[in-house]
Design a protein around this nucleic acid. Structure first.
Length: 182
DNA sequence: GGAACGATTGAT
DNA sequence: TCAATCGTTCCT
């Protein structure tokens, strides 16, 4: 689960959807061009947060993975809210639990995650990743959502049937198929 | 120096 | 289906 402690209170949820972004070999990854610009954090040692500004409007949060010097991170795409739901509601301006954390921008907003948390140590800071209170169900795999390169790589992972999983606009479900080329 | 695009969301 | 909105990338 992902948990954030702020002056406003605690908000936490169980991670139910995530995507892997690799290093300089993954054209869809921010790390593709090396440790320049915002992507430098992806080349730090695993265990810290990579927070980036998306579409000029939203913040998204990753867990950096792999050894120092190698690019890689896991984008947290959806949470099942478990703690601080009213705080999440206030931050999100939504009421339904399924509307609080069912997308990378939504969950960052709900947990109060922003640029201040970039490069934060997820083992020992206000923002942590820890073991969930109950184990996952079946894990399904699909292509990643919202990208235009490496669109077929099966690097999205989610708990099948969980109502808090984001709705994949791009149709990135396990049933998705690219039309056969002729 | 400028144009285009993007690991998204919410309203129309 | 489209606007919001801005940092990064890519082109001239």
């Amino acid at each position: 689960m992902l948990r954030h402690e702020t002056a406003e209170g605690v908000a936490a949820g169980r991670i139910v959807e995530a995507e892997a972004y690799l290093g300089t070999e993954d054209p869809a990854s921010h790390a593709y061009r090396g440790p320049s610009g915002r992507a430098w954090v992806m080349f730090e040692a695993g265990g810290c947060a990579y927070v980036y500004f998306s579409y000029g409007t939203h913040w998204c949060m990753n867990v950096v993975a792999g050894p120092k010097g190698v690019g890689g991170a896991v984008l947290i795409r959806a949470l099942e809210p478990l703690e601080g739901l009213d705080l999440m509601r206030a931050r999100r301006g939504r009421d339904a639990p399924e509307d609080l954390c069912s997308g990378p921008g939504k969950l960052a907003r709900a947990l109060g995650i922003g640029p201040e948390q970039n490069a934060a140590d997820l083992r020992a800071s206000a923002l942590t990743v820890r073991k969930a209170p109950f184990p996952p169900g079946e894990i399904a795999v699909s292509p990643r959502v919202g990208i235009s390169r490496a669109v077929d790589a099966p690097l999205r992972f989610f708990e099948r049937g969980n109502p808090h999983v984001s709705r994949a606009r791009a149709g990135a479900t396990e049933a998705r198929r690219r039309p056969p080329r002729r």
